[in-house]
Nucleic acid binder design. Structure first.
Lengths: 297, 297
DNA sequence: GACAGTTACGCCCAACGTAAGCATA
DNA sequence: TATGCTTACGTTGGGCGTAACTGTC
């Protein structure tokens, strides 16, 4: 269970090839073979089928463990090195697309900032690994409830904005004339599958037992206006913050009435932020929030 | 950042001594010294002050990373080994004290079961590490909200019970005559500090910004009736499930009215449970729940 | 027979233990 | 002076590469 072996295992599983993984890791094919053999003998179970190279059930389980483990390990390393390293002159802000509300944009310093917009789930990863100095993530939550973020590293998380939700529908949609919608009304609707940009439905499914959300087109970009046009063109519904849906300029935005859910934005900084990140986080809080956060556990 | 080094580091920090850690780990003092030196040179920063042996600020950060990391590593290893190992004949159920409601107790199989009651935060740890086959944890949450559990390993979590809360007060307490209480009423009360048994207040503090919960006696056991007697004797208030507080036989139980919080119990099983654990989990669900669970993220 | 993973074998370095060194109470 | 961490040094084994082997398309 040496992380070295785990990393090799994960790479082999991803490449579905010993030799490709060896090239990528700078080993010989032989070394990779030996590492996998060592891991398999350590755990007393085959982890990879050969020809084709694919994880066995036990291998799948190990992947589930190994990936977050390696992530945490990298995050820990980066965090410790950051303590020593001299503070960078530029501030790198990593944000998910819908986390950049008007308030956040206004509060950003206008010099020495690199703004990177990435997939929603990449944001905590970037901040934890030191890839970004400050993160802005959004998601759906009950009012004043914190977002459920993966705990890759001890980060300081603060809510900075909450706003109501809306569903973006194509103009001719039968539900487009409703004054407000309930999630239950949308149980059988077709949703855009855009987990990085539109608000993800996975968690919401469980609120409506029995309801099956049908998914249609998958969008992997991070561009909100494209997303809105996709929704307006009838490729599927999109759940968005009300202000975004209302200002889309295409389609029809219908407010979401219940259950009580809001669009929430949070600031992520390392427990010991860089000076620039601390200042920027302070400005964001002063400008927009903080928003109350209820109940840890 | 080899886990071997991390484990040594954590041990040295705990023992506050190189030689004691060496004894505990089965190394020579010299080896431990070299391992710490290797870690410090790898991270380019001193981690431990010597004489006395105590973590530096950087060392403190590393401890924060290393402890959960090693936990996850052990959990992963245990999980994989469990896949291979032959299923044990006995079922070990690990539960926090207040997770054992009447329903849960009734649903437990009456043969071949070892029931272990432990500190609340130990339950996920035990299930993740394979130390127990099935876990029952409780906590405070908004209705149909899942508990916030540390994600040590991929576990299957299902709600099985929710019930209202009550505060247990000594008979003469000024608030004991109220028909119901609000958390705000209790902002300045003195609470028992019993995180393993009574419901912990840490998270609740943030709901009432400005309110400072004063803590008094600390109770580290897992015995509910002792806790009730402590509360009744005026050592501090205790937040409990209403049925428990009402049946305490001592003190006065006053229902908690708002904000909307409930006592929630969840079943924890490994993603691939043992046969006995799967059966027991099924019985628990059939008997008591499942309780709705809203929103992932 | 070509491609891809395994096995054999030799080499080397990382890591441990022994033992001497050194700093602090 | 005693205790306890560090440094020096010799030894060993784990892990890598080279190369020969084997199984599968």
């Amino acid at each position: 269970m040496d992380p070295h072996l785990l990393r090799t295992f994960v790479t082999v599983a991803r490449c579905a090839s010993f030799s490709a993984a060896a090239r990528e890791l700078g080993y010989t094919q032989s070394a990779v073979s030996q590492q996998i053999a060592a891991l398999e003998s350590d755990l007393r179970t085959p982890l990879l089928g050969r020809r084709p190279v694919a994880p066995t059930p036990a291998g799948e389980r190990l992947l589930e463990h190994a990936r977050p483990l390696l992530l945490r390990l990298d995050a820990a390393r980066a965090d410790l090195l950051r303590l020593t390293a001299s503070p960078p002159e530029r501030l790198t802000v990593t944000a998910s697309p819908l986390a950049l509300g008007a308030g956040a944009v206004a509060a950003l310093p206008n010099t020495g900032v690199t703004l990177r917009v990435v997939d929603r789930e990449t944001v905590p990863l970037a901040v934890a690994s030191g890839d970004g100095d400050l993160g802005l993530v959004d998601g759906v939550a009950a009012p004043s409830d914190p977002l459920r973020l993966p705990d890759l590293a001890p980060l300081t998380v603060t809510g900075v904005a909450e706003e109501p939700l809306a569903v973006l529908l194509p103009a001719g949609h039968p539900l487009a004339r409703c004054p407000a919608l309930d999630l239950a009304d949308l149980a059988d609707a077709r949703w855009l599958d855009a987990p990085g940009t539109a608000l993800p439905l996975e968690g919401l499914r469980s609120t409506l037992s029995g309801a099956r959300f049908r998914q249609s087109l998958r969008y992997d970009g991070t561009d909100v206006s494209t997303l809105c046009r996709l929704a307006a063109a009838g490729h599927g519904l999109a759940l968005l913050p009300r202000s975004v849906a209302g200002a889309a300029g295409v389609g029809v935005a219908v407010p979401l009435a219940s259950p009580a859910l809001v669009h929430r934005t949070e600031v992520l900084v390392p427990k010991v932020p860089t000076a620039a990140a601390a200042v920027a986080a302070g400005r964001l809080l002063a400008h927009a929030g903080p928003v109350p956060t209820a109940r840890g556990q």
